[in-house]
Computed example of a mutant assay.
Amino acid sequence: MNVRDRLTGRARAAADAVLGTALAGLLAFVAYQIAHTWGGDYWQFGCAAGTVVCGLALARRRSRRWTAVAGLAVAAAAVLVATFADLPAEPGPAMTLALAVLVGSAVAELPALTAGAVAAGGLAVAAGSLLTGNLTQTVLPPVTMLNVAGWLGAVTIGLSSRLLAARRRTMAEDVRRHERLQLARELHDVVAHHVTGIVLQAQAAQVLARKQPQRLDGSLSGIEAAGSDALAATRRLVGLLREAGDPPTPGQESLADLVERFDGPAVHLRLPDDDDDEPAWPPEVASTVYRVVQESLTNVSRHAPHARSVQVTVTRQHDAVTVVIADDGPPASASPYRPCGFGLLGMRERLEALGGTLHAGPRPGNGWSVLATLPLPDKREVR
């Protein structure tokens, strides 16, 4: 479980704890008031029915559809029993709050048809409370006004949450589509890079066939290796594309330029030492490293304006590249929502499709860090 999932789980548990406390308090308060004004055991039925609906509200995440249906059924039964047995008006305050939670949750999460049916059922229960109220009054009974207000609040909040979720999905899809278009351009350039190498080696092989045929085998092996590289790189990039920017960016030199142009806290860049025995990064790897650093610096300028410095460290082992971007912003800038940005969403998709990983979260003490790992392709392997 990642940081975001843990934070979400804790937030939900805290919200349910607050809701449970509020429901229990309302149940106890209403039971006391009924016992004090009506006397006897009149409070028991309403308290029992309210407890059942409140329990369903707390268990709504197990099945939003069936908990909502069961809650509305219990509430409707409570209205009928209260009407014919001359009991206190139902649904009471605790049940009203629980029904609002069930209806709002269903409207926000369930398919449109089911959500509409649950909302209609909630309105029917709210209107049914008229049966238990004092119909001789010229205004609506208080219990009806309370239930109608609860229903309106639930539907309003549920619809707002539903529209917000739809908007976020649309924005996320736009980011993915933009990323795919950029990758499509990169695919063209990666293929051109490798095919150019194949053409040059093939031309050299023709010369060797005439002048030094004994060296032809080595040249043909080079062509085979270049073709394997082209095939592997193409497949890795095609794996990122589900449907039909900027051109790919070279590796370390462009990172230095990016850091120099950054308009924000001072950036300290550490790059791997040059090693003539190591092959150059494949274009798709270099471009991905660049984009991760670029997006991370953008997030620093947006979410950590009070940071004093940023450390960008790029290290290379034989089979992988690791990128760490860490800022020293104050704890207030380490918002739990920060890693959910759409830019990092696109980067995560790209890294995972290339076999890499992306982790983002608050640092111990203060600041934020982004850790990306990206495997380097085996030059001898055709994937």
Rank of each mutant, 00 (worst) to 15 (best):
A108D: 04
L237P: 03
R350G: 09
A115P: 06
L187C: 02
R235N: 09
A172Y: 09
D275M: 07
A154L: 02
S161A: 14
G343D: 00
Q317W: 11
L27A: 06
A35W: 02
R383V: 15
G46W: 00
G227A: 15
L159M: 08
H359W: 15
V312R: 00
G150M: 08
A73D: 04
P272Y: 00
R177K: 12
R12K: 10
S63Y: 08
S301C: 05
S254M: 12
L56N: 01
A286N: 00
R235A: 12
G122E: 03
V285K: 08
M95T: 02
P377D: 05
R215C: 10
T288R: 06
G55L: 03
D328V: 03
A94G: 03
L26N: 08
G264F: 08
Y42E: 14
D378Q: 09
T138D: 15
T132E: 02
G121M: 07
T136R: 15
D319T: 13
V148W: 02
F45A: 10
A117Y: 05
A14Q: 10
P247I: 07
A225W: 11
V103H: 01
A266R: 14
V18A: 14
L371S: 09
E243A: 14
E260Y: 10
T313Y: 06
A89F: 04
R235C: 03
D229C: 12
V79L: 07
S309P: 08
S221Q: 15
E186H: 12
D246M: 11
R316L: 06
A286I: 01
T288Q: 02
P339N: 05
R242V: 10
T249K: 13
V238N: 10
A35F: 03
A230C: 10
S335N: 11
L241A: 00
W151I: 00
L123W: 07
D328A: 01
R316G: 06
R235T: 11
D263Y: 06
L237I: 15
L163E: 14
P283T: 11
L297T: 05
D217P: 03
D274V: 12
G153W: 01
A266N: 04
A372F: 00
W281D: 06
D174L: 14
R316S: 03
F84R: 11
D229T: 00
R6C: 08
F45S: 09
A165P: 01
R162C: 00
E284F: 08
E260V: 04
Q206P: 07
L241P: 02
L183Y: 08
A280M: 10
D246G: 12
A256E: 15
A73Y: 01
V382D: 06
A70D: 08
G341Q: 09
A360M: 08
A225V: 09
R168H: 15
T138K: 13
V175G: 01
G50S: 03
P375Q: 04
G227W: 07
E381G: 00
L351G: 02
A326D: 11
G218P: 07
V382H: 10
R10S: 08
V312A: 00
P272I: 05
A326G: 01
V382M: 15
A124L: 04
R210Q: 09
G197K: 10
A127R: 10
V118Q: 07
R236K: 13
N134F: 13
M347I: 10
T138P: 03
L7V: 10
A244E: 15
V285P: 04
R60G: 00
R291L: 15
L164Y: 11
